[in-house]
Every structure is written in C-alpha cells, then in structure tokens.
Write a protein that binds this DNA or RNA. Structure first.
Lengths: 150, 150
DNA sequence: TCCAATTAGATAGCTTGCTATTTAATATTG
DNA sequence: CAATATTAAATAGCAAGCTATCTAATTGGA
C-alpha cells in the first residue's frame, strides 16, 4: 500500500476497540433485561458476586478485586445501600474503614441472578464449539493482560 | 456436579460478560490517554470516523451506522458542536433533518487520531499471531451477532 | 383534504464509569 | 512526641450510555 493511502487503512468496522465497545454494550443490555426484574442493575451485579462469595469486605478490597476506581465503587455502594441491597458497618480496629454486608433480600437473589448471567453468557457463546469458547476466554485474558501493563 | 452445588459454578472471573466489560474499559482508557491531547474523547471518536469517511450525514444515519441510541447520539453531537468539532446545517428538503459537517479543526485531526487508535489496537493485540488476531476478530463478530438477534 | 401514523430530533432523568480533590484516620520517621 | 506520609472513603463534576417522553414535520390513507 502506498504511503499516501496510509490514513485510509483504519476503518471503524475492523477496529478491535470499536467492536469490543459494541460487544460490551450488548452484554450489558442483555444482562440488564434479565436482572432488572430482580431489582438489580449491571453495576451492582459484580459487587454482589464478590459479596456472595465473601461478605464483610471493605470498599478497598472490592475496588482491588473488581478493577474499578475507588470513586466508582463508592457511588455504586451508595446506590446499593439506598436500594436495600447492602448495609455498612464500622470496622472494629480502624475508624477509616467500613465493611460491607448483604441484606437478607440481596442474599436471596444469588441463585436467580447467577442463572441470569449464565444465560447471557450462553447466549453470547451460542454456536461456538468448546474449543472456540476456550480460545475466546484465553484471548480475553491475553488482551486484558496486554492493556493492563503499567 | 451435584445439584446442590449448582449455584457455585458461576464465578465472576470466568464470566465472559465480566471480562468483556473489563476489556472494554481498558480499551477506552488506553484510547483516551492518546486522544485527549488532541482534544478528543472516546465518545466522539467513532462519530468522527464516520464523518471523515462521509460528511453531511444525518443524525439518524449516524445512529444506524454506529449502533448507539438516538438520544446518545444527540447528546454526543451537542458536545461535539460545543467543542468546535462539528456544525449542523438544515436539510434542504426536510425541515426535521439536520446534516452534520466537520469543522476545519476536526478535519485536521484524522491522521493523528487514527494513528492513536491503531496504536491501541496493536498494543491490545501484542503477542498474538496473525491467526490469533483473525480468530479474535471472527469471535467478536460471532458474539456480536449472537447478542444482536432481535 | 384532513386526520392519523410515522419520523427526526431534543430533552429529562437515570446508571456507570472516570479524574481530581477533600477529609479524616492511621502509620512512619526524625 | 510531633510532623509528615499514607490510606480509606467521600464528594464534585464530567462523559457516555440508556429508557422514556415530547415536539415538530412529513407521509399516507380514508
């Protein structure tokens, strides 16, 4: 390709960044449709997964585990408290820290919510062989690793 | 796996939806770092790509082409107008329609901006063979297709 | 022709994400 | 011990996405 045509070889439809953004929005849309009836939303969902696995984590721990910014987590937790999904208790040894606990309501949603998420993943991966699904997971990890460096 | 363990087989770290969301945020972060010095942002970028290819499109055409909601596009175009990237002109035949045009400033950014985006894609795909990169693109298309149905 | 349906776009109001800054508490070090 | 660093969390303010609703213009039928 001649040097003068160089700026033409970038097209949106073939850009991985564009496709990834579109895919993420489609995932979120599909998940939202299934968990909205449960009173959940896409932002609260990963927090709930972390807490279903281990309750009483600090905001800092959730931030590290989920890879969002501290301010994002603070806002998400505020909404979750407002909506009756979590409560916060003072840390016994460190007055800066609050620990996060699930309400009974939130505890009761685990089964239905994880089933909804599995359904979305299965639908997204429909028609892919086991090898393709594994290849996709491996490529996701690789790309995430590449973009996470420093 | 026994029936009673069923709810435990969903883990965030292995959920495609979670990984895809993380990957999309990393892509956006990497792109933002490179185009912010040009006065651009991630939301305006695909609109510019579409207009660099063909100016004078209507908002409706941009919506269809980029796969965002009409309200999202309206807001994005407002910010772009505010920031001196586009102007809008009345359509000669239909008073409901406005066509979107690039400012001289926006026209001058094409080369630098597409280079920035290529750089992000290359970094994300670093260490992948040509076959892997093609496989990734094919899987993206497949998954997008699956989630786009109806 | 006129009324209903459609279409283009704007607006309201929300979530989810970000950066940057602030406040308060704890840890560290001279 | 006092001054400084660091750490945890909150807050301000913005971008980018969404749904839902509204207005105005155009189109299509009866």
């Amino acid at each position: 390709m001649p040097e003068t045509d160089k700026q033409k070889d970038f097209t949106r439809s073939r850009s991985e960044g564009y496709q990834v953004n579109l895919m993420a929005r489609l995932f979120a849309h599909a998940l939202q449709a299934r968990i909205k009836p449960l009173g959940l939303s896409t932002g609260t969902f990963p927090v709930l997964l972390a807490l279903w696995e281990r309750e009483g984590q600090t905001q800092r721990e959730l931030v590290t585990e989920l890879g969002v910014e501290q301010a994002t987590m603070a806002n998400t937790l505020s909404r979750m408290e407002r909506d009756g999904l979590i409560t916060r208790r003072a840390h016994e040894a460190d007055a800066r820290v609050q620990t996060v606990w699930l309400t009974e309501c939130a505890k009761g949603l685990e089964q239905a919510a994880t089933e909804a998420a599995s359904e979305v993943n299965d639908r997204a991966m429909a028609g892919l062989s086991d090898e393709e699904r594994h290849a996709f997971a491996a490529l996701l990890s690789k790309v995430i690793g590449n973009l996470s460096e420093t």
